[in-house]
Write a protein that binds this DNA or RNA. Structure first.
Lengths: 131, 131
DNA sequence: CTTGACCCGATACCCCGGTACCGGGTTGAC
DNA sequence: GTCAACCCGGTACCGGGGTATCGGGTCAAG
């Protein structure tokens, strides 16, 4: 698969692929005789994975770590487990905060027809007095 | 409260406060005779709110919107509600994706002592074959 | 009345995650 | 055998979100 094809099927642009390659996120692919990159089919999944992780708020450096986790054998398990566990608690905190924010917005939507004093939004409510 | 005090109690640096002020996130505070900024006590909560929202993946532009929601009266309710609703579904999607990622990492932690073929991580597992 | 910690505005710079542009080579359908 | 569509490496640029630095004014303890 050439770079244009990979780019369009993974939904990124060609420059971005080269950028990922430079950053070490995407292994350097084989080259055709004339120097064109020849990606294996799995590259599509890798690139999509990168995008997904990014949407979830992981940085590219973290994505690199995440990709490393997948490859480690049982020999590297302790390190792998430590990394995964750390990411996990990070994730849990973020989920909890987002849920709080979500509940808070739900309340706002439910009550925002009322005068300010009767609204109920713990998140935004604390700012009601100012500005 | 002067800028240094606000900065340290909200956990940001003084330049950042000025940056937020330029961006319109933080109202211009009153000034002392000699031109020093004099922030009201609530500024601490506002700045902390900004940081929290950012950690959750909101951009500063979105934070501005969020701050706007708090102030809107019932007259601007329709617009407010629309914005809040939109953010809400956005939030819900992100929560769902993060939960998927969390479950996936949990499985990895649970099973990563086994040989690769017996591990169970839908997220990372799909990358097991390559690299 | 000096000295150190603080503040001011302005400007420049930094990292991240790309994106665009350049001059030039390759491919392949017509 | 030409022409559009693709690819190459290199380099420059962009927007977001700050951070650092400069030259100078202010405040308060000693």
């Amino acid at each position: 698969m050439r770079s244009g094809e990979l780019a369009s099927s993974a939904g990124v642009n060609v420059q971005t692929l080269r950028y990922y390659e430079r950053r070490g996120l995407l292994a350097e692919p084989a080259r055709s005789g004339s120097g064109y990159r020849a990606y294996p089919g799995e590259a599509v999944r890798i690139v999509r994975f990168i995008r997904r992780a990014q949407r979830l708020g992981f940085t590219l450096a973290e994505v690199e770590t995440l990709l490393g986790l997948a490859g480690g054998g049982p020999d590297r398990c302790a390190a792998t487990r430590a990394l995964a566990t750390e990411k996990l608690s990070d994730l849990e905190n973020r989920i909890a905060e987002l849920c709080f924010m979500r509940d808070s917005l739900r309340n706002l939507v439910r009550t925002c027809g009322r005068p300010a004093a009767q609204r109920d939004c713990p998140l935004l409510g604390e700012l009601e007095e100012e500005r």
